[in-house]
Design a protein around this nucleic acid. Sequence first.
DNA 1: CTCCAGAGACGTACACCGTACGTACGCAAC
DNA 2: GTTGCGTACGTACGGTGTACGTCTCTGGAG
Lengths: 210, 210
Amino acid sequence: MPAEPLSRARIVATAIDLIEREGADAVSMRAIAAELGVGVMSLYNHVPNKEALLDAVAETVLSQIEFTDDPDAEWTDRVRMQALAFRQIAHHYPRCTMVVVSRQLRSTAGLLPVERALATLRGAGFGGDEAVRALRVFIAYIVGSLLREVGVTPTFAPVHRSDVRVSEVDPLLFPQVGELAPALHECDHEAEFAFGLELLIQAMALQLKR
Amino acid sequence: MPAEPLSRARIVATAIDLIEREGADAVSMRAIAAELGVGVMSLYNHVPNKEALLDAVAETVLSQIEFTDDPDAEWTDRVRMQALAFRQIAHHYPRCTMVVVSRQLRSTAGLLPVERALATLRGAGFGGDEAVRALRVFIAYIVGSLLREVGVTPTFAPVHRSDVRVSEVDPLLFPQVGELAPALHECDHEAEFAFGLELLIQAMALQLKR
DNA sequence: CTCCAGAGACGTACACCGTACGTACGCAAC
DNA sequence: GTTGCGTACGTACGGTGTACGTCTCTGGAG
């Protein structure tokens, strides 16, 4: 078979695939090249260096956010939708999430969500500075939440080590942690995310009325 | 000179120093050993591996949080103080921040802030599950904010590239981003952090009344 | 058709990384 | 004295990113 020609898009795609399958640490130019059945240095004909490749990975992931925006809906609903869309893509590429949030992008893919959010907020009646400030709060909450949800640890699966930990924690030093251990270990990520998001949206709405 | 003996503490200290001076990417066992005037493999007598060393770095940084907690103060003030203390230490070790938030610790140093926060929240009248939920929201916001503030990029200094960007952004594709560019580039980190924190605290207080 | 320039694939090489392993030294216990 | 152990250290191995030179192929120009 002629093996369709190497291309930046194919390289980025295999990089994403590799990250999801084996974790971000396992990504090396050699591994990607091997995956593509290609010499290592051939990659450099399409990508200037590894940093740029990871930027492209982040950009590609971000560009797949699906915004189903209804311009006639309440701004609160629209903000919620955007936040959930962001979260959804992060969960579709869980192990890429760290890569995405670790580098701020100046590209189109990185700026588009910002543009949308700002438009929504200003449409709701926020002034320019207020909209920027609100957006920053939302982004901080979303990024922080995703980092926790996705684990940040090499192994993604939400392993249950509750039994281990409960016994490890000294209940004298950490009475609250000890008592609340069950609650601390169980976590309905989706519900928790929604809770904080609702909190922020309501607070913002209140801020807007004033 | 006898050169005081190698120790885990000295190794961790130089690692922190190195991270702050040259960035987290520049940290290698060889570099740390050179800094200490010592053979590379000598480090392994005190630290099992690099992962564990970075864990120790995170732990050490966290353990330096200064909590000046007044048990008689309003819970809102106490929560604010704890959040600000966390932020302060992150700004004291800006380039270590990524290392700290990238690994969740099960150690005493990592659990102590959690214990304090839970105690404060429960003292305020939150139930166990509510306190945990509230804590998660706060942590998400704080971590997300710090990641933005600290830059996450290799270069920490808040370089002004506003002039560059304004011209780069296509105002047709990104009208909001274009118009709000000045606000997007200027950022009083402290004020922004406080704004979101206040928003969350107020929302929590409202939640508590209900 | 010939010729040649450019692009892309590839191998080699270098500097650096984490660390497994073996060795050498100093001191405490017997 | 000697035995044993903890620590410092050198060497070596398999990995990394990538600079550089080389080879092959392809697509026009003459």
